[in-house]
Each structure stands twice: as C-alpha cells, then as structure tokens.
Design a protein around this nucleic acid. Structure first.
Length: 499
RNA sequence: GGCCGCGUACCCAAGUGGCCUAAGGGAACGGAUUGCAAAUCCGUGAUUCGUGGGUUCAAAUCCCACCGCGGCCUCCA
C-alpha cells in the first residue's frame, strides 16, 4: 500500500517513497523553542508529526526522526532580516525572576534567572517530560539517542561552516554593518514553498521590515545568517566576530549534520512555512548545490480552543501540564490533539477531551476482554479493521477515518483468532499510542485527593452495608463536589476525576 | 491590500460527482442493569450538507455570488 501525503511544496497529494533504497525515511521536525512551557497548540503540531512517523512505521518503513530543541534565544521581533527586539531567553529570565519574587515559581525551578543556558535547559527538560507523557516517540528515543533531538547551542560550528560555504558559493555576503545576509536573489526558487516570491513580497503589505537595516542589504528580503554582537546574551566566536546565528540557520545545519543534504520529510506548524522553511530551503539548497532539500513538506494547521484563537488574554490558553494537573490523562489529550485531520484547523474543547477519554476507555476494555478470550480462528473484526485503518492512514493521514474503523470493529461481535485479533488491535495502537498512557499523572495534589476519596468511599461502603441510602447519597454528593465520579462494580467501587 | 483554507445533526468529525434517503465518537432520549444513580450493554438520531443561483441524466461533492469563520504575508506549532 502506498502512503499518499499532501506536500506543501507542490500543493498536491503525492505518493511517498523514501530516497534511501533500503526504505529508511529521513524525517526532520521543527521542535519547540524552550523559553516557556509548550502549549497544546505546539503539541498538536509535534503529535501530528509523531502520528505520521508511526504511520510510516506501521506501513513497514524504518524512520530516522530528528526534532530540534531550540535553546538559542532568538529575538522577539526577529523578522526575515534583522534580529531586532529582545532576546526570548531574556524575556523568560525576567518572567522567572518575577515569579520568584511573588513566590509563584514552578516546582523545582531553582534556576538562575540571569543564565540563559539554565533557563533553556530547565524548559527543555520540562518539554521532554511532557512530550514523553504524550507519547512523542522521538522524545522517548532521545533517552538512548540524544543526538535525535539536537540543540543549536551545541551545533554552532556546523552553522558557521554552512555560512562559510554560502559565502564561498556567492549566496551570502557580509554587509556594511558586519552582519552576514543570505542573498535571496541568488536563489531563483525562493518563494516556491510559501508562494511568497520576491515580486509578491515587494507588492505585499510590507512596511514591517525596519527601515534601518534596509540600506545595507541588497534586497529587502535578504535574511540574517550571522549577527556579530558582543553584547548578546548567548554568543560565540566566528569569522565575522563574536555574535549569534540567524534563526533559520539551525535547522538547515542540524538536518544536514544528522540526516544529510537531502531528506524525505520535513514537518512544522503552518506558521513555519514562511519565512522559516522558505529560508531553510534556500540555505540548504544553496549550500549543497542540490535542487531539493526536503522532498515533502508536512504542515499542521493551527489549533483553536472552544472555537477561538488560543491566547493568554482570552483565558483559553493551556499547556499540557496544566491539563495533566487537572487529571486529564495523556492518552485523552493525545487523541484530542490528533483526531482532526492535520490540514484543517482543529477545535480543542473540554467536551472533546471527555469524548476522547470515553473512546479510549472503551478500546481499553475491548482489549481486556480480547486478551481474556481463548476460542476462535481466522480473521475477526480487528484484523479487518486494521486493513481499513492502514488504508485510512495511507490516505494523507486520515486519522478520523482510521479511528472510525477501530470503533466499528469494537461494535462488532467478537470472532477470529484471539491472538491475531489482539495483535491487530495493538498494531492500531502503535499509531494511536493511547493504551500505555491512559492513567492520570501522579502529583502531590492528586495523592491528597486520593486520601480524601478513599476515606469517603469507606464511609459510603459502611452506609450502603447498613442500607442507609440517605447517608450513602450524601457521601456521593460530597464526592461529586470534589470532582470525583464513582463507578460501582462487582469488584467494589472505583473512581476517577471528572474532567 | 495580496495570497490561501474552511462552513456537514446539540458538540467533535469523515465523506470532494452516482454504492450518500451522509461514516465514526460524544451528548440527548427510550430500554436493560442499579436501593437510586454513575459506569456498562442494547436501541433511537441529519430526506439533508452556511445562503441563493447555475452546470449535469446525477452535486454535500463542480462553477458563480453572498454571508460567516480562520490562516499566511510579522515572533509564533
């Protein structure tokens, strides 16, 4: 079965086949910048890349997946050219210093707010923790293969080498202000990925590129590769003076270092298309002399929350850990973030999170009864569903259709060889990745709640034994008020936090 | 201002010319179960696909207009 995927570069759905004859897929994903906790919108993008990677694996490919963790403090107003504004790490540092003062520092954050490396490392660790909870396979692999999640601060020599090569080939120049710029006019395919060709850029709204740098550049869209700045927070020696790299440079350098000059797949959020990925293409192609950098570009559309753009001011802004702290299982969050096709704007809702949890619980109980079954031969509903599941994923990653296939199997009567049926269900889960993370995360608050709940359940058990229904119902109301939902079963009462 | 995408039941969401009197999940409702609930199981659910035109033997699917929402062009996943 051939995987078909939408390629941003050609704006069409194409058959996927890797460059390497042995079928190994080279896949680079733009990861987070670690100056704050990743929010659920970030994770929608990262998880869709993860689903793609797992779907490829289900289809028999070996995947070498790299995702960077950007620990350089790029500028808050860093536009295509200039590197203006404030360093993000400095902003994060100030935020941490303020939090320290007001005693609202996140747990375990004994960090020096003036040390950008400490800030980056603090948030990188938190990102990896969240990512592993959510089943981001590359983050799980990172434990044994740290090179799969490279940090730009450790790859500066490779970036410098790339800039030197671009200068040598006539694609970059040192301007009068000492800054090294990429010359967009030297790359005729500039604009092909995003549609922002040079003539259109000139026609566009424009006026955003600050005038002070324009004078020294050959073309207004020329973007910075290296900026000498002896006062910058993070800086490295270079042939152009002590300074820092441009923000597009890292991905080109690291993809090349780890995956080669030409790669199969490159992913990111839709906002990365321009300027970030456009500039990456230009840098990589011009450095390698090849016509292509990534053969296929995979972009995930943005997430909305309760029908609105997510923003801190609207109060609809969630990080993964915010939700985990409320008792949301990583499995439910994972499913809610990937169940909508990656090329449509998805709408994250609390109701949707509950829907996902119920679906996963039903799958899990189906798995339990399947594992307990011994009789049956041949193909049953799950083996049939797996075929449809794989076809749906091969169809430009149609996750919703794949999930429907699984749901349909669950509604059918149990039949077929139980071992093969279980294997089929687990194969589907190898992409969905929910069974192994369907438990709420532990925390001090959760432990505290558990103690209270256990005491109340004991009171209720006693009341029920005495047929004191009034007392029993009173206790149940108390539990409900605590946000707890109870389930009475033959083996006694279980409970969970209602989300 | 330029470029682009979307609008399917109460909610999420698949389907992009005939197998669609529209998949799947949740909610709701009815039943089984329960001390009563919750959970679970069974059943019910859009003659209709933002609105108005058009093309076609045939449209949710193609075209046009309008309304609404969103994205990129600028740091952002």
């Amino acid at each position: 079965m051939t995987m078909r995927l939408y390629n941003t570069l050609t704006k069409s759905i194409e058959n996927f086949s890797p460059i390497a004859p042995d079928g190994t897929v080279t896949f680079y994903s733009c990861g987070p910048t670690v100056y704050d906790d990743a929010h659920i919108g970030n994770f929608r993008s990262f998880l869709n890349a993860d689903i793609l990677r797992r779907a490829l694996q289900l289809h028999g490919f070996r995947v070498k997946h790299v995702m960077n963790i950007t620990d350089v403090g790029h500028m808050t107003e860093d536009d295509a050219a200039d590197g203006g504004g404030e360093d993000k790490m400095a902003v994060a540092g100030r935020r941490i210093a303020e939090a320290k003062k007001s005693g609202k520092l996140p747990a375990g954050a004994e960090i020096d707010a003036t040390d950008p490396y400490a800030i980056a490392s603090f948030y990188a660790d938190r990102f990896l923790e969240d990512a592993r909870h959510l089943g981001l396979q590359v983050a799980i692999e990172e434990r044994t293969h740290p090179e799969l999640m490279p940090r730009p601060t450790r790859c500066v020599p490779q970036m410098i080498a790339l800039v030197e090569q671009l200068i040598a080939r006539g694609h970059a120049y040192v301007a009068k202000d000492g800054v090294v710029y990429f010359s967009v006019e030297s790359f005729s395919a500039y604009g092909r990925l995003s549609g922002n060709t040079l003539d259109k850029l000139r026609e566009g709204e424009g006026g955003r590129i600050s005038a002070q740098h324009q004078a020294v550049k050959r073309h207004p869209a020329d973007f910075m590769l290296w900026k000498p700045d002896p006062t910058h927070l993070m800086r490295w020696p270079s042939p152009w003076g002590e300074g820092y790299p441009g923000w597009h440079l890292e991905c080109s350098a690291m993809a090349r270092m780890l995956l080669g000059d030409e790669i199969d797949l490159h992913s990111g959020g839709e906002d990365n298309i321009f300027p970030h990925h456009e500039c990456e293409v230009a840098q990589s192609c011009c450095a390698s002399g090849r016509p292509a950098f990534a053969r296929m570009w995979f972009h995930t559309r943005h997430l909305q929350v309760e029908g609105e753009k997510m923003s801190k001011s609207k109060g609809n802004f969630f990080t993964a850990r915010d939700l985990f702290a409320k008792g949301v299982t990583p499995a439910a969050l994972r499913l809610e973030l990937v169940r909508t096709h990656y090329r449509t704007n998805s709408n994250f809702t609390l109701q949707g999170l509950r829907d996902c949890q119920r679906m996963i619980d039903r799958w899990a109980s189906a798995r339990t009864s399947l594992a307990a079954r011994s009789a049956g031969t041949g193909a049953g509903p799950f083996q049939r569903a797996l075929i449809e599941f794989k076809e749906a994923l091969a169809d430009d990653l149609n996750v919703a259709r794949a999930i429907a296939a699984l749901n349909t199997a669950i509604a059918e009567d149990a039949s077929g060889d139980p071992i093969a049926e279980l294997a089929a269900l687990d194969a589907m889960n190898s992409v969905l990745g929910v069974f192994e993370r369907n438990e709420a995360l532990q925390s001090a608050a959760a432990d505290d709640l558990a103690t209270k709940v256990e005491a109340l359940l004991e009171r209720r058990r006693a009341a029920r034994a005495a047929k004191d229904w009034a007392e029993s119902d009173r206790v149940r109301d108390e539990l409900t008020a605590l946000g707890v939902r109870i389930k009475d079963g033959p083996q006694g009462t279980t409970w969970e936090r209602a989300v």
